[in-house]
Design a protein around this nucleic acid. Structure first.
Length: 228
DNA sequence: AGCTATTCCCCGTTTACATCA
DNA sequence: ACTGATGTAAACGGGGAATAG
């Protein structure tokens, strides 16, 4: 229903409630306020959502209402206003979430592409290695001279291609993604979780505080710019 | 300091009324 | 024209917090 249409239904001016509470509760005179009264109340509410007692009495006199009616109108108005605010915040939060989710999808695809590329390079390297094995066994011993034996007795070769790509997992992260041990630890974890579809599981949202999303004033830039 | 009465507010609910199918 | 369902504004009641006497 349109607002004008709504108000036209209640053109009867409320001349003031003189009945007591019991009569009010039982009575059939439960009239809605007139358009003029509502307009005046709205104007005051825009500047102050709470009324000082003296102003409440004065306003009630001006509008031909009981002070209690004015007080109750302000109470109900605050409740309606709060409800609308909550709805706005919810919509904002949902939009931010959708934005974040789509960014995550993009990142997952990018990661998958990088993993595929890495796999391809690995296979290429393997092929090159096998060719070298065929060509010259002596050189292989030199190339693998920096390989080590780990504490658990596992052999860990460090093999380098001519282009300088280091095929050791941690080094790849450092050289290709610019990740330093420690400083980007959280981001690394996020990437690893994303690879396991961990971020899409609601189980992992326990530490995800909606407050921090809404409280954008605490940082110098919008949180969602983190991904851009 | 502890108690009581009063006032205000919030929250959830009820009541009265208008609208619509 | 009547009626039941639904939505909304006005009003209520309970309970907590603050304040004064």
């Amino acid at each position: 229903m349109e607002e004008g249409e709504f108000f036209s239904c209640f053109s009867e001016i409320n001349t003031g409630m003189t009945m007591n509470k019991k009569k009010m509760r039982k009575g059939k005179n439960h009239k809605r306020f007139s358009e003029e009264q509502i307009k005046s109340l709205e104007v005051i509410f825009e500047s102050e959502t709470r009324l000082e007692p003296r102003k409440k009495v004065q306003l009630a006199r001006e509008l031909g209402l009981q002070p209690r009616q004015v007080a109750i109108w302000f109470q109900n108005k605050r409740a309606r206003w709060k409800s609308k605010q909550l709805e706005k915040e919810y919509n904002l939060l949902r939009a931010n979430y959708n934005n974040l989710a789509s960014q995550l999808e993009i990142m997952k695809k990018e990661k998958q592409a990088l993993v595929s590329e890495l796999q391809r390079l690995n296979e290429e390297m393997q092929k090159t290695k096998e060719e070298r094995n065929d060509d010259c066994c002596g050189e292989q011993r030199v190339a693998l001279s920096s390989s080590t034996w780990s504490d658990n007795g596992k052999y860990e070769p460090e093999v380098k291609l001519n282009q300088g790509i280091v095929l050791c997992d941690d080094d790849i992260k450092t050289e290709h993604f610019g990740f330093e041990e420690g400083s980007n630890h959280e981001l690394m974890n996020m990437l690893e979780q994303a690879g396991d579809s961990g971020l899409t599981s609601s189980d992992n949202w326990g530490s995800f505080s909606s407050d921090s999303l809404l409280d954008q004033s605490s940082s110098n830039y919008p949180w969602w710019d983190f991904w851009s």
